[in-house]
Design a protein around this nucleic acid. Structure first.
Lengths: 230, 230, 230, 230
DNA sequence: TAATAATCGAGACGGTACGTCTTGTCTTTGA
DNA sequence: TCAAAGACAAGACGTACCGTCTCGATTATTA
């Protein structure tokens, strides 16, 4: 969700600054906003500058003024789009998480290990490392921010778990869902477990995710299905 | 680990500010430091003020100046003891984690569920919530701080996993350890899983830890030992 | 001098924005400009808004953006006519000074007192008070602005002194001018004295111009002509 | 009135920032303020920087941040002493006016001409020119500032008129005062006339104060006493 | 009637200064 | 020697205006 801004990339309207982005006229066509349209180049420059600055300076060193300077943009231009550092970083980081994919390698175990590896690699990037926990920390105090983080960063990744389950069911490794609600809860619990554990290992303990560790962790996840554990 | 300060509670020297706290004379008696001794009341007031301010204002709203004012202490006195907000909060929060205990309720499942509940309750407290992820976030940029966090907050809780395993082995629920190293790694992986998952559920997803959720999560943890899953 | 703008009131061309306002064709008739003509209503709305804003907010509170908003006009429209706040306020205030008149009441003393009263009343108006000294202050740094202030606001009022002298000469109160240059200098000195003194009394000392004060001040001005002092 | 600040030059307490500057203990001795005393060097550097910046950049170009930078002082240090540009400039300019003196040259005419010349020279200095009218303009909107300007800059100069009158009375050029109140009002009117007229001539008309002009203006002032006009 | 051209509104743009806040250090007096 | 009080330099904060620009829409004259 790379923070598109209305008149420039009107494909997917966001509520980035709380205002309707692309007002529609009654006939359904996208109404042209009045006044000078916002610069798409500025949007891109700002998000790029944010990611660079995160990687170089970390969360604490990231300053709105610094981002503006680095993006060669006025501070007003920055604040017009994102009301604070938090929202800016959410958008800047969200796109990184869209790179994660469910590969479908032919076995549930292989798929899990691949996703864990991808996630570990993502968490090893300095911009992710600098931003993720700090955002989560801010989210604990600001429910609206937490919702934004979940919508833009966290929840979209649950698709990986759902896709993996579906593929395993097609392959016959897992039984088909009988109860929709229970399936949903199981997706949640699996997702929280994978995400939380890998984050804790990498970001808190500060230890690497090796192939061996991934194998053992996958053993744990597959525990309820002994037939899948070698 | 309530951040004792040397001349006052000389039972366990800390490295709080990098200096040996209670120098010992050659004859083994604790040497009296020169000059006016530091006030023990100030230490307590500072840590209490820190916890209160964390609960009220969150991590971002917590400032050294504010803590000093609230503790009715000069800023100099504060900085003389803790070099920065990070270290101060580590000490202020660490003691809260010492409240966690392994109850030994007669079954591994019951023990796990009890510990998860305790941890969830701890994470529900505003001061913990405000501080924990913020500290972890700071730790990703400052290896020394990360070490301090692990030593004071995270690693001590691994005892819970070890105690739980030992009790289960005594009860015959788990086989005795054969390989010491493997056992250690298993403790680590279990710990990261419990800690990370519960943190993610509470602090990121912002959803409560219910008895039902705890049961399902324990099912997952006990997956490799089907005999323990009802 | 109510800031006429060329195509609308082409009677007296101004140099308001440095460009020839109403280009003349070779045959002497005023050539009609191409394109959409400037709105006369906008001019009036802007000057009215400027005077109102001056009275309400003072010089410092007056901003171009604010004037544009209050006049329901785009900022571009404002800047197209007046290059800066200074020029705008000169035109907005100048017309107020045109209200001053030399009454010819039958004696020099009465005429002087009448003019002083009128001037004091003008200086008591909030828009004048807010603008006059601020314009003079700006003028000390910008010779072109000072010239514009003199041409539009200050010098035109010297007619009052000249008219009063002429009337007194007709009445025989004053001797006729012998030296043209000396007469001019005397007009200047009298004008600077009246204008400066009243301004200082009202705007700096902040004390009112009473009838008693006016009488005493007129005594001073008439000092060189004892026969006129009662 | 060079803006002394309490613990440094405790001779004359000011109300510069509204707080009692040098609190006195009951026994009349000046109580020592707690904490680190304010730097006298900073005061001097700030006022010097203000005067320099006024001369170079004018009132509009004078910035609190600029003054702080030029004085090699933090902005907080500046704001701790003077709440705004207005108050700062009052203090920076006030001292310049203390240089004016009544010379007592043996005749009222000579004394008046000498004071007018001094005042004209003062108004010709760029820092005075930049500041004076701007301060007066601000004063029209802020009664407290106007009072401050009068107390620090304007009213102290009335001593010149009083001294001149007294000397002339000693010399027998003027009759002794009979009515105290009337004398006071006459001082006021004379002062407003001299100050206002010279200011208007120099700052508004922008024309120089020549010896010839001074002679003619003095003629006007001495009008009521024909015996003193040559 | 159509083309042309300057106007209009709206609002985004890069800049600059604002006055406040926090940080971590320093400099006093007093205990 | 420490405690308290508060001054100090440094620098980020988010806001307000500045004067310019880029739009689409409007309103005149000219062809």
């Amino acid at each position: 969700m790379p923070a598109p801004q209305p008149p420039v990339t009107p494909d997917r309207p966001t509520v980035r600054d709380g205002l309707p982005a692309a007002p529609e006229s009654p006939d359904g066509t996208t109404a042209r906003a009045k006044g000078r349209p916002r610069s798409a180049a500025a949007d891109r420059a700002i998000l790029d500058a944010t990611r660079e600055a995160l990687a170089e300076l970390g969360w604490g060193g990231l300053t709105m003024g610094h981002v503006a300077t680095r993006a060669k943009v006025a501070k007003t231009t920055l604040y017009r789009r994102w009301p604070s550092k938090n929202e800016l970083v959410v958008d800047a980081v969200a796109s990184l998480f869209d790179e994660l994919v469910m590969p479908d390698l032919g076995s549930l175990r292989a798929d899990i290990e691949a996703v864990v590896s991808q996630f570990a690699a993502l968490l090893a990037r300095p911009e992710t490392q600098a931003a993720l926990l700090a955002l989560f920390a801010e989210g604990t105090r600001d429910p609206q921010l937490r919702r934004r983080i979940r919508e833009a960063i966290v929840d979209p990744q649950k698709r990986l778990v759902r896709q993996g389950r579906a593929a395993a069911q097609v392959r016959g490794e897992l039984a088909p869902d009988c109860d929709e609600t229970a399936a949903c809860e199981e997706v949640d619990i699996i997702f929280d477990t994978i995400a939380g554990t890998v984050e804790h290992r990498v970001l808190v303990s500060g230890e690497p995710i090796t192939a061996e560790w991934t194998r053992r962790f996958t053993d744990l996840l597959l525990g309820p299905f002994p037939s899948l554990v070698p």
